[in-house]
């Protein structure tokens, strides 16, 4: 056996955790040792580098369906917001929330701040790290982030009321980064 495939499974998974999920799924074809690794990896990073947007959406949906309910440590998405796929985004985020995601990175590019997160983003006790881009946090929603220690909000709309709600709803917060935000 080659040196890479000889490594213990935990080490192979550690190596794969530094790759985008697409690269991880591709490794299935490398040799017989590899096909199941992508279905148990706990770090998911989806970045839209597909030619067709729909191919990207299908890729994410199919990956999540195939891996079932394995625990997720990190869930990251980087894409340009597309109106027709909002329900898909909400489904992915709900999936991550239900599988106790610890680090949630929702890097949405947009022409304007227009993404309204689903309810499970406001009240979720699993994430320790949360990053939201192009996000409009509604001031009439309660925030409950009991485990959160690190929060980054970028290109986002923030009302005073929301800042107050974050301070109350995230008692363990140690690090807050606001980048290109508006009121």
């Amino acid at each position: 056996m080659d040196r890479l495939s000889e490594l213990p499974e935990s080490v192979l998974l550690h190596i794969l955790s530094f790759l985008t999920t697409r690269d991880v799924v591709k490794t299935a074809v490398v040799s017989k040792r590899w096909p199941h690794l992508w279905t148990i990896i706990q770090e998911l990073d989806f970045s839209d580098d597909f030619v067709q947007y729909q191919d990207f959406v299908d890729f994410v949906n199919r990956t999540l369906l195939s891996r079932g309910t394995s625990r997720i440590k990190r869930f990251g998405i980087h894409l340009f917001l597309n109106d027709s796929s909002r329900k898909d985004y909400d489904g992915w985020i709900l999936y991550a929330a239900k599988n106790n995601v610890e680090e949630l990175f929702l890097d949405f590019d947009s022409d304007c701040c227009e993404w309204l997160p689903p309810k499970c983003v406001y009240c979720n006790s699993s994430p320790k790290t949360l990053r939201l881009w192009s996000c409009w946090l509604r001031s009439d929603m309660q925030i409950s982030w009991n485990s959160l220690t690190k929060l980054t909000l970028r290109f986002s709309v923030l009302w005073d009321k929301i800042i107050h709600k974050i301070m109350v709803g995230a008692p363990k917060l140690e690090f807050l980064e606001l980048d290109w935000w508006g009121l």
Binding site: D2, R3, L4, S5, F18, T27, V30
Partner: peptide, 23 residues
């Protein structure tokens, strides 16, 4: 090690790490 796999084709990954194709 991951940096060497990043965005490579399957063929390139096999060659870089000397993985024999057992399929």
């Amino acid at each position: 090690i991951a940096d060497r796999i990043n965005n490579k084709s399957v063929r390139a990954v096999r060659e870089i790490f000397n993985i024999s194709n057992d399929y």
